[in-house]
């Protein structure tokens, strides 16, 4: 399924370019979802169906929904888009683009140095993954559990709506 791979990766790259150039947050988010979907297809074409499913469900589904919630909650609409337009002047993006292009060129050179190897198109299915995950990676799984737990607690703590407050270290200097 190389054709599938090439098409989907092209879509992913184009969608990503659209993401970083959009002014309106919702547009950018929608393009990002497209990009994630395309990457899910590339996973499929590489024989990783489980990863593709996770990509769609968690990335495109859960995480992007979080973003959309926030955008809605903060009511970021036309005004933000206008501001983004003002901020994205050529002199702002020119130098970063040059630098990142140089980085890309160097990475591609590095990647293409050894002779290309083919990938066997045999799928690694969910069974293998779960056996390995709950076998040798069991400790890592538990650690990830901790991480998610702290993420929840941290988000709940930080996200609490409080009166405007500053840390005591910053109070004397700024207010």
């Amino acid at each position: 399924m190389p054709i599938l791979f090439y098409i989907s990766s092209l879509v992913a790259i184009l969608a990503t370019i659209m993401v970083i150039t959009r002014y309106h947050p919702i547009h950018a988010l929608l393009y990002l979802i497209v990009s994630f979907m395309a990457i899910a297809v590339t996973f499929l074409s590489m024989g990783a169906p489980f990863a593709a499913a996770l990509e769609v469900i968690i990335y495109a589904g859960a995480i992007m929904v979080l973003f959309i919630f926030v955008v809605m909650m903060l009511n970021l609409g036309k005004q933000t888009a206008q501001q983004e337009k003002e901020w994205l002047q050529p002199r702002v993006w020119l130098w970063p683009s040059v630098l990142t292009l140089v980085l890309l060129a160097e990475m591609i050179v590095l990647l293409l140095r050894p002779s290309p190897t083919d990938m066997p198109a045999v799928a690694v299915d969910a069974r293998q993954i779960s056996l390995s995950l709950y076998g040798e990676y069991i400790i890592a799984v538990e650690l990830v559990g901790f991480l998610l737990m702290t993420g929840i607690v941290g988000a709940a703590h930080i996200g609490k709506q409080r009166k405007k407050s500053l840390h005591r270290f910053l109070q004397t200097t700024t207010t």
């Binding site: 630098l99 990142t100 140089v102 980085l103 160097e106 990475m107 050179v109 590095l110």
Partner: peptide, 12 residues
């Protein structure tokens, strides 16, 4: 980024 570029350039 500049640091990464520096290291990769060196490696190249």
């Amino acid at each position: 980024l500049i640091g990464i570029l520096f290291i990769i350039t060196l490696q190249l």
